[in-house]
């Protein structure tokens, strides 16, 4: 299987005339493991939808910020407008150090320093970019994170005005502009992801002492209010 995929990737690279040489494609099996670092925010595979980040189906050849139904950072909107497209080469550079490549990206990820990891994950993503009708179902993509939360909590409709007030406690550290250096961006998240993340801190499933403390004293309604506010925050 591995050999076959590699062969296929090589063939595709040649067919597309991509600037990447055959050696720049890695092992998609190994790439699936590397991808586990991405899946908290990006879905890929059948049924994948936008979450915190855009879905990554049919990524190759897509213009940066190229999907109308996802709210991209201004940085990527500019990059897309000036012609940036996703290919092995551009992905390789971006994944090595996302912020140095696109300084305003909201992708809170330090990057993949290991070149083999990058080649492998690019090969993995390449497999979801062939014929969209033929996209393989892949584990564990398109599986939402932690659904131990009572559906009644997820169904709460937050009050954005209260959320705005509560958010002022977040913006001491998390920049309202979506800027991200050392502390992740939290704007434009889908409400469900936001609520799940906050409850995971509140329940001490996610490990960060500041966030455990901050989330620990928020009621279910307050978390819903924050989610409602940050979802639409525009600057």
């Amino acid at each position: 299987m591995t050999r076959f995929s590699r062969f296929l990737s090589m063939g595709v690279a040649v067919l597309l005339g991509a600037s990447a040489t055959a050696d720049e494609f890695g092992d998609p099996r190994a790439g699936a493991k590397v991808y586990s670092q991405c899946k908290g925010c990006h879905q890929v595979g059948a049924g994948a939808t936008h979450r915190i980040g855009p879905h990554l189906n049919d990524l190759f050849g897509r213009a940066a910020a190229g999907m109308e139904d996802f709210k991209y950072s201004k940085s990527f909107q500019r990059a897309g407008a000036s012609g940036l497209e996703w290919h092995a080469e551009t992905l390789n550079a971006f994944l090595e150090n996302p912020r140095s490549y696109a300084s305003g990206t909201r992708m809170s990820f330090r990057g993949l320093k290991d070149e083999t990891d990058r080649r492998n994950v690019i090969a993995y993503l390449r497999d979801f970019s062939d014929d969209p009708a033929n996209i393989p179902e892949a584990d564990p993509t398109a599986t939402p994170t932690n659904h131990d939360i009572d559906p009644a909590i997820l169904a709460l409709q937050g009050d954005p005005e209260y959320g705005e007030y509560l958010s002022s406690e977040c913006t001491t550290c998390h920049q309202a502009s979506g800027g991200d250096d050392g502390i992740p961006s939290i704007v434009y998240w889908p409400e469900e992801d936001f609520v799940l993340a906050m409850h995971a801190y509140k329940n001490k499933q996610r490990q960060h002492p500041v966030m455990q403390m901050m989330a620990g004293r928020l009621s279910n309604e307050e978390i819903a209010a924050l989610a409602a506010y940050f979802k639409n925050l525009d600057n």
Binding site: C173, S177, V210
Partner: peptide, 30 residues
């Protein structure tokens, strides 16, 4: 409340410093 622990790994301490830089950007903008 919470406090950092003695004997933490270098990775944790580095992340804590990077977090403080993020906070600096955050609070000055705020």
């Amino acid at each position: 409340g919470f406090i950092s622990q003695t004997g933490e790994s270098a990775d944790v301490r580095k992340a804590t410093y990077q977090e403080s830089e993020g906070w600096y950007s955050g609070i000055t903008a705020d």
